[in-house]
């Protein structure tokens, strides 16, 4: 039990400090907590096209700042999440979404993990059966 206390404590402290480390976002005058939550969720979901491995929330690039401002204005205007996503896709393509839509050209991307899991399961069943047969004989 005692050996667990220290690592647990470290984890808790790390967890608490996470929001402080999290983002490059400038403070914005949100009208409600819901707006702020939506803003953060969308900013995490949309890719910064300049620095392509960062989201809008992570990036300090001037374009990311502009897009965050745009995102904020759209939320203030009462646009829905889907409308905001469409706005970004119309200008920058599916690439801006970290979760691209399911379509014929993204099918392998979406189905890939399940496909690999199925192949793995079939493989293990075959191996287990072979071993059993060996043990019996």
């Amino acid at each position: 039990m005692r050996r667990l206390v220290l690592p647990l404590l470290c984890l808790i402290i790390l967890g608490l400090s996470q929001p402080l480390l999290a983002s490059a976002i400038e403070p914005l005058p949100f009208r409600s907590e819901l707006e702020e939550i939506r803003f953060k969720a969308l900013a995490e979901e949309i890719r910064c096209t300049v620095c392509q491995n960062q989201s809008l929330a992570d990036s300090d690039a001037p374009l990311a700042q502009d897009l965050r401002r745009e995102l904020f204005v759209m939320i203030q205007d009462g646009r829905t999440d889907q409308e905001i996503r469409n706005f970004m896709v119309e200008r920058y393509g599916d690439f801006v979404l970290y979760r691209p839509p399911v379509a014929s050209h993204t099918l392998l991307l979406w189905a890939g993990p399940i496909l690999l899991l199925v192949i793995g399961l079939i493989g293990s069943v075959i191996i287990i059966r072979q071993r059993r047969a060996l043990l019996k004989s």
């Binding site: 300049v50 374009l63 502009d66 745009e70 200008r91 920058y92």
Partner: peptide, 13 residues
């Protein structure tokens, strides 16, 4: 200057 129209044009660099 603001970069607003650039967003409509899909400019990213």
């Amino acid at each position: 200057f603001e970069g607003r129209s650039a967003i409509d044009l899909g400019v990213y660099g």
